[in-house]
Amino acid sequence: MVTHEDVLKIANLAKLSVAPEELDGLTKDMNEIIAFADTVSAASADVSDFDNINGLSNVFREDVPVPSYRREDILKNAESSEDGYFLVRRRR
């Protein structure tokens, strides 16, 4: 069972602030999500290596450089930028 403490811990790790009145709802939601995911554990399957069910290995890239993107394109989605850097403003 997911508790209020679990939710607060996960929120803290994700740097989210959770208001006290939201706690009950989020705890309930998380329990339901985990219960849903448990249906996978309940299913019977012959595959033991769930990590790599497609059996692929060693998909590599050769160490050959290609030109990078233009800086203005890289910064296009940035909320703000300064002198070619991404800018993270101090929170007030």
């Binding site: 890239r61 800086r71 070619g84």
Partner: peptide, 21 residues
């Protein structure tokens, strides 16, 4: 010569954010 998961160069000392994808 290139980064671990993409083909951008690893060269040191370039202008900021010019070796990115």
């Amino acid at each position: 010569k290139t980064k671990i998961f993409c083909s951008c160069t690893t060269e040191f000392g370039a202008e900021p954010n010019t070796h990115c994808c």
